[in-house]
Nucleic acid binder design. Sequence first.
DNA 1: CGACTTTGACCAGCGC
DNA 2: GCGCTGGTCAAAGTCG
Length: 493
Amino acid sequence: MGSEEKETEEEIDLSLKIDSEQNLKEEETAKIDDHEQVEMDDKEEKAPAKDEEEATETTTGENEDDTSMVELSLPQDRNPRELSVLQMEMDRMKEENKVLRKEVEQTMKEYHDLRMKFAVIQQNNKKKDPQIPLSLQDNAKANKEGPRTVPEIFGVKIQRSPSPANTDDSISESELGLSLRLQPSTSQHDKALEDKEENKEELASFASVKNKLQRIHHHELPGITAHVASPPNRKARVSVRARCQAATMNDGCQWRKYGQKIAKGNPCPRAYYRCTVAPGCPVRKQVQRCQEDMSILITTYEGTHNHPLPVGATAMASTASAAASFTLLDSSNPISDGYTQTNLPFNSYNPINPIWSINPNDHSKGIVLDLTNNLNEFTPRFPVAGSSSSSAAQQGLFSWMPNKSSYYHQSGNANISMNSFPIPSPRSLDERIWKGEENKPLADHNVGAIALDPNFRVAVAAAITSLFNKESHHSSHPIGSTSFGANRNNGQK
DNA sequence: CGACTTTGACCAGCGC
DNA sequence: GCGCTGGTCAAAGTCG
């Protein structure tokens, strides 16, 4: 144990070193850029617009190596002393860049090895007990109950917190889940490395992510880990807020309702659904209307599918996964940071951009993916009376509105009478979607809107890559089979 | 009649 | 220990 802890500390030290190197490099780059900018402003006052362009290019250029950027922007008529200083800085940065690249390559190798080992473990578990889901979380649990733990099998050393709250469950669930979600990033950067086109910014970003993963692995980020590593017996959750007038969002999976309740603080009933795509799939989702804006549907996903996802579900899952990756692993992301601090719980939504955040007031809610941007409005896809979603909500014309006393199911605090609302059958709308009568799945619409956000484009692309890589390990289950989505009820009885 | 939803009951976790 | 709340179960009801 003692040696393990020592090794852990060394790894953390390494992480911090990379972080500090990265920060130093960024600061230096910024300093050099600023310095040059001032000088060029002095020398080229006649062309301020050009300067601005260059400055923009310097700060926003994402496809060039930073060192080359500096080289390109070096003026030729600088005095030799300044040039030599800058040249030294550049050389130093290049050296650091090389070190970082080596780090990334090494990490990629290690990560690939771990993935291969995990695939083997999954295969073994599947052979032993076909009922054991392939999800990391469940495997972790299964392994916990068995004679060997996942870390032991993998041969990796995970520092266990002495706190009784941090049991193997929390370690396995949060960390292994996070590991998978990081995969898309690593894949992207691996490809970038091969192409030798990667820039320092991406490299540094990846190094940062890697460092955070390491620190999460070693419980060195209590602030972040606490969000994910909810109590040991709880799974990570991803909440998706989106405007939708149907009873539920069509995310490509098949769901069976198994309960409904009035939750405290929201008169809208909360519906509980189980995934029925595959028997024994542990994934559940809760669907509830936002109290403030009833056109907003809050869907909370919990668990990991033990089956390949349909195309629509893949896209949706990718989004959620990507949000999880960026939110949990890249706290340097200004967006995630900002909203982690400022985004309020479900009762306030951000109409500007689709955004993901960690609910600061209730970490048990997990990650909140806010798709309530106008672009994500599903309204036009449904023949619902009422021209706008809000007016429709006020008039009680949504298809999701309860049409029976179920609205008061186990209530005690329901204070809105729905009896006067003319309500179309939610089932009929859902069925139309399931049977493909709608022109396109809602998920497509949703993903299209998400794709407009550059941050999400990166995240979603990465997550999709991850899923494809993941699916490659389950060659017997081709992804996106047409048998999915249209058929209801694969089992449950 | 099978599949699915509804809904009352039950249970576990948590705070006081 | 007690009550509240969230989550789940399962019998009854509904639908095609």
